[in-house]
């Protein structure tokens, strides 16, 4: 007796599809089993193989979320700047603009896996500040299809004081899984 069973399993979310192939062949042990009146034992041989085909549906960029805050009478509240422009800078070289004259109460900034600190220039319209984040950098595997990503641990924030009055690390761990309403640092104005 021989038959083949093939089915496909699709898992949503991480986009994993698995093809399972079973090939069954049976050997009948007749001999003494039948002689003694016992039901024949069927030896079923199977060959199973599962070939996974993962589809990467995740962004492997590690980004830090900075919220704009004001503090009055001990109470901290969100604040919005109507004209915010942000770009990165490294060793005197300016990189492309990340935010271009947008209205925002929070900004999401990519940290640099090539070094131990990342520096941005934040232009609030009338004045600009430099924001430098010192971080520890490790690397971890998201999946074998998505590959590696950087895991940052924020250690220190330095900034000029033209507009930004203070800063605070809320969540020092920055990885590639950015959740809704996640926050890493607060910038006080």
């Amino acid at each position: 007796m021989e038959f083949t069973l093939i089915f496909t399993l699709h898992l949503p979310g991480r986009g994993i599809s698995c093809f399972l192939h079973l090939h069954l062949s049976s050997l009948l042990a007749i001999g003494s089993a039948m002689k003694k009146g016992l039901a024949a034992l069927f030896l079923i041989g199977t060959v199973a193989s599962c070939v996974t085909r993962e589809i990467c549906d995740e962004n492997n960029q590690s980004e830090m979320v900075a919220w704009f805050k004001t503090e009055a009478d001990g109470a901290v509240s969100d604040t919005i700047f109507t004209t915010v422009s942000v770009y990165g800078t490294r060793s005197g070289e300016d990189f492309s603009i990340i935010y271009d004259s947008v209205s925002a109460s929070r900004i999401v900034l990519p940290l640099d896996p090539n070094g131990v600190s990342t520096t941005f220039v934040i232009d609030f319209g009338s004045q600009a500040d430099t924001l430098s984040i010192r971080h520890d950098t490790e690397y971890y595997l998201i999946s074998y299809t998505c590959g590696f990503a950087a895991l940052f641990t924020l250690e220190m924030i330095e900034h000029s004081g033209n507009v930004i009055l203070g800063s605070e690390v809320i969540n020092p761990v920055v990885d590639a899984e950015l959740e809704q309403n996640e926050e890493h640092i607060w910038l006080y104005f």
């Binding site: 990165g88 990340i98 990519p110 640099d112 896996p113 690397y139 590959g147 990503a149």
Partner: peptide, 14 residues
């Protein structure tokens, strides 16, 4: 040849 991708800053090669 592990590549840590960074679309903004440039990839880092381990």
């Amino acid at each position: 040849n592990v590549t840590i991708p960074s679309e903004y800053w440039g990839d880092f090669l381990l």
